[in-house]
Amino acid sequence: MSTGRLTVLAGPTAVGKGSVAAYIRENVPSVWLSVSVTTRAPRPGEVDGVHYHFVDDATFERMRAEGDLLEWAVVHGRAKYGTPRGPVLQAIAQGRAPLLEIDLQGARQVRETMPEALFVFLDPPSWDELVRRLVGRGTEGEDERERRLATARVEMAAADEFDVRIVNDDVERAARELVSLMSSPNPEM
């Protein structure tokens, strides 16, 4: 796969964006996955430089102020996330197939600066399944879960802003559908 077109994958919290991206990282080496920066603490099993670049607030703010981020957002009212600009532009220039796994706010920012990108929304099979996944991962307390579910409601309402929607009812199937769209010169929108 060598398209040089940016693909943006977004969707509500706990929909499985990270799982789909991890499947692609492990099974489709031709796709270049951007590694975001974040000010949040690593979750169990996350590796700095692989899953995220974990930085302090001062480093994040310096990157933002210097224009080093393609997009950035404060997510769930707490942690900051952003996409380093340089590596993405370099991957595109090399004709690689770059994939950003980001939130709704970030996707909107990228659309403003790179409208030619393919914007893909990852849907849960149902709202109840999304709640089950969020509760089931056990990484947030009750207050944080409620904050994330409130954010998810807003994110779900924005799905029509995207070019394509994929239902994540099975990680492998959803990842393969995404890779297929990335390979298509004109994905059905």
Score class of each variant (00 low, 15 high):
Gly136Ile: 11
Leu134Val: 09
Val131Tyr: 12
Val164Met: 12
Asp160Met: 09
Arg147Leu: 07
Thr7Glu: 00
Phe119Trp: 02
Val31His: 02
Gly4Asn: 04
Leu118Tyr: 01
Ala97Ile: 08
Asp48Ala: 11
His53Thr: 12
Ala152Ser: 08
Asp169Asn: 01
Thr139Leu: 13
Glu146Ile: 05
Asp57Ile: 14
Arg147Trp: 11
Ala91Pro: 01
Val88Arg: 05
Val164Lys: 10
Arg96Leu: 13
Gly45Ser: 02
Glu112Asp: 11
Ser180Pro: 01
Val167Ser: 04
Thr113Glu: 03
Arg137Met: 12
Gly67Met: 03
Pro42Val: 04
Lys80Phe: 13
Asp128Glu: 13
Thr13Tyr: 12
Asp170Trp: 09
Thr139Glu: 13
Leu134Asn: 01
Phe162Gln: 00
Thr7Gln: 01
Gly77Cys: 10
Ala175His: 01
Gly67Val: 07
Ala22Gly: 05
Thr3Val: 11
His53Arg: 15
Gly11Glu: 07
His53Cys: 10
Thr3Gln: 06
Arg137Glu: 15
Glu142Met: 08
Gly106Gln: 12
Gln105Asp: 13
Gln109Tyr: 12
Thr3Met: 08
Ala117Leu: 07
Thr59Arg: 14
Leu70Asn: 02
Val131Gln: 07
Val15Ile: 06
Val74Ser: 14
Val74His: 15
Ala10Asp: 15
Arg147Lys: 05
Ala175Val: 01
Arg137Val: 12
Val47Thr: 08
Val135Pro: 00
Asp128Trp: 10
Met189Ile: 15
Asp68His: 05
Leu89Thr: 10
Gly141Gln: 09
